[in-house]
Lab assay of single mutants.
Amino acid sequence: QVNIAPGSLDKALNQYAAHSGFTLSVDASLTRGKQSNGLHGDYDVESGLQQLLDGSGLQVKPLGNNSWTLEP
Score class of each variant (00 low, 15 high):
S8N: 10
N37H: 10
Q50F: 09
L53E: 00
P72H: 08
V45F: 12
V2N: 03
Q51S: 08
L9T: 00
S36T: 15
G33E: 06
T31V: 13
F22V: 08
K34F: 08
H19W: 14
V45N: 04
G41P: 00
T31I: 14
G48Y: 05
H40V: 14
Q1F: 15
T31K: 00
L63C: 11
T31L: 14
Y16N: 01
L9K: 01
T69H: 07
S25G: 04
L52Q: 00
S29G: 09
L30K: 00
L49I: 07
P6T: 05
L13D: 01
V2S: 05
S20Y: 15
N14L: 14
E71A: 09
S25D: 11
N3I: 12
L30H: 05
Y43S: 01
Q50W: 12
L70R: 04
S56P: 01
S20Q: 13
Q35M: 15
G48M: 05
N37E: 08
L58S: 01
V45T: 07
K34Q: 06
H19V: 14
S47Y: 08
L49V: 01
D42T: 14
L53M: 04
G55E: 04
A18H: 10
E46V: 13
D44I: 05
P72M: 11
F22M: 08
Q50R: 15
E46C: 15
Q1W: 15
E46H: 11
V2L: 09
D27A: 08
A5H: 08
K61M: 07
W68R: 00
T69K: 10
G38V: 00
G21F: 06
S25L: 15
D54V: 15
P62M: 12
A18K: 12
Y43W: 13
T69G: 10
Y16H: 03
V60T: 06
D42I: 15
L39R: 01
W68T: 00
S67D: 05
S47L: 08
P72T: 09
Q51E: 09
G48K: 00
T23G: 06
K11G: 09
D27R: 07
S29P: 04
N66D: 07
D42S: 13
P6K: 09
H19G: 07
G21W: 06
G38R: 03
A12M: 04
D27Y: 06
D44P: 07
D42Y: 15
N37T: 08
T69S: 11
S36I: 03
G64I: 02
H40P: 01
S56N: 04
Q35D: 08
D54M: 15
G21P: 00
P62Y: 15
L70Y: 02
G21Y: 06
D42Q: 12
L52H: 00
D10F: 14
G7I: 05
A17I: 07
L52R: 00
Q35V: 13
G64S: 06
R32G: 08
L53V: 12
D10C: 14
G38T: 02
T69F: 08
S25I: 15
G64P: 06
L53P: 02
V45L: 08
L39T: 03
A12R: 04
A17N: 03
V26N: 04
K61F: 08
G38M: 03
V26S: 06
R32E: 13
P72L: 13
T23L: 11
S25R: 10
Q51K: 14
S8F: 08
A12V: 15
Q15R: 06
W68S: 00
K11E: 15
P72N: 07
S25N: 12
Y16D: 00
S47T: 12
G41S: 02
I4F: 03
S8C: 14
D10R: 10
Q35T: 13
K61T: 07
G55V: 03
S47F: 09
Q15K: 07
K34G: 02
D27P: 09
G55F: 05
H40S: 12
A12S: 07
K61Y: 08
